[in-house]
Design a protein around this nucleic acid. Structure first.
Lengths: 140, 140
DNA sequence: ATAATTGCAAAAGCTTTGCATGGCC
DNA sequence: GGCCATGCAAAGCTTTTGCAATTAT
């Protein structure tokens, strides 16, 4: 039984509903670990073996263009993906490639107000994201 | 005439002083555009043709380990480098790969105070950096 | 029907690695 | 002289691309 919500997202974005796209979206919406394309493929294999990695990249590219997912900025060579949700920030582990979401509405407000008041010359802000690097205590 | 300061940085970090390392450091300290390894090579070619890209990568790796430079987080597949300086943030162009530094001590203080007061569960912060994405008005 | 998506495979980046040579201390 | 860095070339990984076959609308 396929999630109605997932199909709705695809339809709303003028994307044809294919099993491969549903599978990729399921993985993205069901995980908060900011998977790489390869990670997504591994998650998918349970129900969808035989999907080529090239297809996953094409699907992710289509999702990015529609704004369904965004690329997470990292300093290593594998691109990581994040389904777009409410505004949030990222906690980066300094010892591994772990990335967690961090929600804080008070902080969002604080930053938005500060940056509205104190404009940056020659730059129009579209997105404000905090990159907090450090150590997690629970090594999940 | 070689910059004394550059040699000092190498010596202070227990790195042998070689022409290649001097050249890479010169590029990094002389540019604020967060170059990729390939960019660095291009800048170097003026005075140092024939340095292989592999050597540049090895040098950058050594500099990272010593903390002389840091990798800049991006969402494309080329790693970019930044010589470590005072705490600062990054302005990312949403239409190109341009990245500029953004200094704001008042903002640093605001963030540090807020995050000191409002601790994040299971996470110890080592670095606070803003990723501001948007549009530059001057297309340098 | 037809336009878009998938599958496959090749190619194109970017980065890393191994080993012999050469250079710094 | 000993050890480390460089140069060169190959290999590794991630991502992109082209095209024919397939599928959704």
């Amino acid at each position: 039984m396929v999630n109605k919500e997932i199909i709705e997202i695809l339809v709303d974005n003028d994307l044809k509903v294919t099993p491969q796209r549903i599978a990729v979206l399921e993985v993205l919406l069901g995980n908060t670990d900011h998977p790489s394309a390869e990670n997504i493929l591994q998650y998918m294999r349970i129900n969808h073996p035989n999907v080529p990695i090239g297809t996953v990249y094409k699907i992710l590219d289509a999702f990015c263009k529609k704004g369904i997912v965004t690329k997470v900025k990292t300093d290593d060579n594998a691109i990581r993906f994040d389904p777009v949700k409410e505004p949030h920030h990222h906690l980066y582990c300094s010892e591994s490639d772990r990335i967690e979401d961090f929600y804080d509405d008070e902080l969002n407000l604080l930053l938005a107000n500060y940056l509205k008041k104190k404009k940056i010359p020659n730059f129009t802000i579209e997105s404000i994201k905090l990159q907090l690097t450090g150590k997690f205590k629970n090594n999940k």
